[in-house]
Amino acid sequence: MSTLDTIPKTKQESLVEVLLRLGDDRLIHGHRLSEWAGHGPELEEDLALANVALDMIGHASSLYSYAAKLEGKQDEDHYAYFRDDIDFKNIAMLELPRVDFAFTIAKQFLFSAFSYFLYRDLIDTVEDEQFNGMLQKHFKEIKYHLRHSREWVLRLGDGTEESKKRIQSAFNDLWMYTGELFDQDDTEKAAISHNLYVDVTSFKEEWMKLVKETLEEATLDVPDNDQYMFSGARGGRHTEHLGHLLAEMQFLRRSYPDAEWK
């Protein structure tokens, strides 16, 4: 929600909030991954990155579609194309420009690891059948994303001197955006009270352990946790990058809103 909105009061409002938070993470991440199409380091990775991007945008689309049904909006596109920066609820890490392959992989790994634990616990918690069905379907794909990115962290970390330097610097640069993964606000607390979300701090240690073990196996240093951490993107306080991303993503649809584009 933007800084102007209030905390969801009803169960349905909470559900919509959760659907949009998950959806926005996935749409924005998928958008950045889709920028690789045709520019990947090898053909196999063009395929793999496009695959993950497709999964992400597909997940977002089904989450949005359910939210649209609940809110009486026309369809999933409403949320992707007709909201502004301050309405988007994705974490900031995912909107950062793609930089290089190491940066994309590090980001993919940190986010997939987070998604893995989040979805695992959500599946055990969420009672809403339609939502839970989506979570189970998406979880299968998240496992693959985690494996794919983890393998690349190992390859790049324990590969050449240059690859090690690049992936280490990617983790260092991304670290200040990891704090936000475990920020818990009142919106989340409201959703938890309706069994629609889980306490993210409950799996923070597991996440950290997986990240640490992977980085150590990749002969990389785990960045210092005792540093400035970015926060607030879920509440609409984004980086400057999101506006440009949305300008690109939304321009055609917004230029001709009355046209049929599906």
């Binding site: 392959f101 190992l154 790049l156 590969g159 690859s163």
Partner: peptide, 12 residues
């Protein structure tokens, strides 16, 4: 731009 990635994969 992908050269270093391919090299890393081979070296690994």
């Amino acid at each position: 731009d992908g050269e270093w990635v391919r090299e890393a994969a081979m070296e690994y």
